[in-house]
Nucleic acid binder design. Structure first.
Length: 285
DNA sequence: CGCATTTCCTGGAGGC
DNA sequence: TGCCTCCAGGAAATGC
């Protein structure tokens, strides 16, 4: 499940492979993977252009081209990007190929479940396509001043952190890991957090994300880096996927609940709900 | 407004 | 071995 650390890893690895490469040809093998309009429009805009820069925004991978066009990838759950030799076998579920010439090979986008996609936008492409909607703050660049306004909502903290329009890049894994590191129960109301808890949460999010990036992300099932190797941060998960195991901090048993419609892992001892919220949302005050 | 539910999609896991 | 069902989940849409 590619979240911010996985996407950041991919962008860093892709950057030297794609920077200043010229797109000689684009082959769309499944038209519906192009989400910004007709596939032929994307092909027309991108062919012949040079890739200038690669950026990450939230969970999206942005390729900036020399004429101002942006090509954006979202990996969904099972999306992968890799650079192969043109002669390499085309693996199953390869939906898009961007040929960069004999020397540089080709960028291939594969996505078994097709929750991912590609967008092309820029330079007068009508109408302006926001890449799958507006994005919230970049957690690694977020100040407390900014974050406190993010928390000022009557929502469960887990649902809020998972909302890409609010915070861009956190998914199920890093949301649960950050909440555990901060000692906050996922069902806590965001606007009910103390200033201290809020400050700690932002600090924990940054720490967890930076450590995860250092370990090239978490590989549970499908995620692979550009070289095809797995990430290793799953070894350091404290709650995610660890239901029934002991908390590395206090020894209590990690539990799995459903919050914000997602599997949610927490330590019931390290992460307690404030007394005011512990008996359900509508208990008398 | 907030939250749950449903939809998309495929492959892996578990049951029999 | 081979079916079958269930489940995972990012994001958008729908319903309450």
């Amino acid at each position: 499940v590619p979240e911010l650390p996985e996407v950041e890893t991919i962008v860093r690895q892709l950057r030297p492979l794609l920077a200043n490469a010229r797109v000689e040809r684009v082959i769309v093998r499944r038209a519906d993977i192009v989400r910004s309009g007709p596939a032929r429009a994307l092909i027309a805009r991108v062919t012949g252009r040079t890739i200038r820069e690669l950026l990450r925004r939230g969970k999206r991978i942005l390729l900036l081209l020399d004429d101002g066009t942006t090509l954006a990838f979202h990996l969904g759950m099972t999306g992968r990007l890799r650079v192969d030799a043109p002669s390499a076998t085309i693996e199953r579920h390869t939906h898009l190929r961007i040929l960069l010439g004999e020397a540089r090979g080709e960028l291939r986008f594969t996505d078994a479940r097709r929750f991912g996609g590609v967008w092309c936008e820029g330079n007068g492409s009508p109408p302006p396509v926001r890449f799958g909607g507006p994005l919230g703050v970049e957690p690694l660049e977020c100040t407390w001043r900014r974050f406190r306004t993010v928390l000022d909502r009557r929502r469960q903290i887990k649902a809020l952190l998972m909302d890409q329009r609010v915070v861009a890049g956190l998914g199920n894994i890093y949301c649960d890991e950050s909440l555990h590191a901060a000692g906050i129960h996922p069902r806590t109301r965001a606007d009910g957090l103390s200033r201290e808890a809020g400050v700690q949460l932002l600090r924990s999010i940054k720490t967890v994300l930076r450590r995860a990036i250092r370990h090239e992300g978490s590989t549970l099932m499908d995620y692979r880096t550009v070289t095809g190797s797995p990430g290793s941060f799953q070894r350091y998960h404290r709650v995610y996927g660890r239901a029934g195991k002991t908390c590395r901090q206090c020894g209590a048993i990690i539990v799995r609940i459903v919050a914000a419609g997602r599997s949610t892992f927490l330590c019931p001892n390290c992460q307690t709900l404030p007394a005011a919220e512990a008996n359900g949302p509508s208990s008398p005050s």
